[in-house]
Design a protein around this nucleic acid. Structure first.
Lengths: 157, 157
DNA sequence: CCTGAAATGTACCGCCG
DNA sequence: CGGCGGTACATTTCAGG
């Protein structure tokens, strides 16, 4: 993982559909070399996938909420996390330090759906309490973070 | 925005580098038709971009935290949001209802860097208080949510 | 890491239902 | 209007050096 890999990663994070030829031109490498490096980055698990990003509101997901989930002592965290993963409305799930065991991001079409989703959350065996923070607006999200990339990386290999 | 568009969106969210030919085969449409539909979805702002997803730990971002930010009364929320956007460590920023005005997701290499980042956060003019929740593990993140896609769409046009 | 060449895919055209 | 086929062009994806 050298400076060229970091450039490739930055470029692909910016435009996941960039062609290898395009990347090569931008970096000063042949398309085949870029292809080979990308394949290695994928195989090494550095690049985990490519995804189209869809405007949530354009597909009717107008309500976002961050929900703290507090399990009762009787349930294992893993079991609760698995149950959370079953709920389609739960987009992300973090195990956290602090008052709650998990914080999840929920996205639903309407407030009514949020109420339904929270009901489903609370019906999960072992969930004793939820603490909901409604998102009023998303200022920015999933922005590239090159702190480590620029700083010269760790050695994954 | 019909059922075919929704299939295309779902497929591209799953694999953002899928070729038009591939999408066409999977859906039962010619590559040119898929190309035209995707172009329209991009122009309409439904698909906002394509991005490679990088394993944060593979690039040395080992620490994640959710930070509630409480501005003082003297600063406008927009000014604070702009200042938050200046910090590279801040990956996402949500304006929220509740005790805090914003919740931001911060990613940094180490705990020391988290301390530094929180210091920078608090030095933003108008930020009076921060409340940090350290993420112990990311169970899943940015998962597709087809609640609305499946449920029949809104009319963006 | 590059060159070269065959297979594949894209992008744009007019045409059709 | 949306979908289809065809074609020149670009890209991918091998081989080998």
């Amino acid at each position: 993982m050298d400076a060229i890999d970091r450039k490739i990663i930055a470029a692909l994070r910016d435009n996941g559909r960039a062609t290898y030829a395009e990347l090569g031109r931008h970096i000063g490498l042949s398309a085949s070399s870029v292809h080979e490096r990308v394949a290695k980055l994928e195989a090494a698990g550095v690049i985990t996938g490519y995804h189209a990003v869809v405007d949530p509101r354009a597909v009717g997901l107008d309500v976002t909420a961050l929900v703290g989930v507090q399990p009762s002592d009787t349930a294992s965290d893993d079991a609760v996390a698995d149950a959370l993963a079953e709920l389609e409305e739960v987009e992300s799930c973090y195990a956290v330090a602090g008052d709650d065991a998990f914080v999840v991001k929920v996205r639903v079409p309407t407030m009514d759906d949020l109420e339904l989703a929270l009901g489903r959350l609370r019906r999960i065996p072992g969930v004793s309490r939820t603490h909901t923070t409604v998102v009023l607006s998303t200022r920015f999200e999933g922005r590239p973070n090159n702190t480590a990339l620029a700083g010269g990386g760790t050695n994954g290999t």
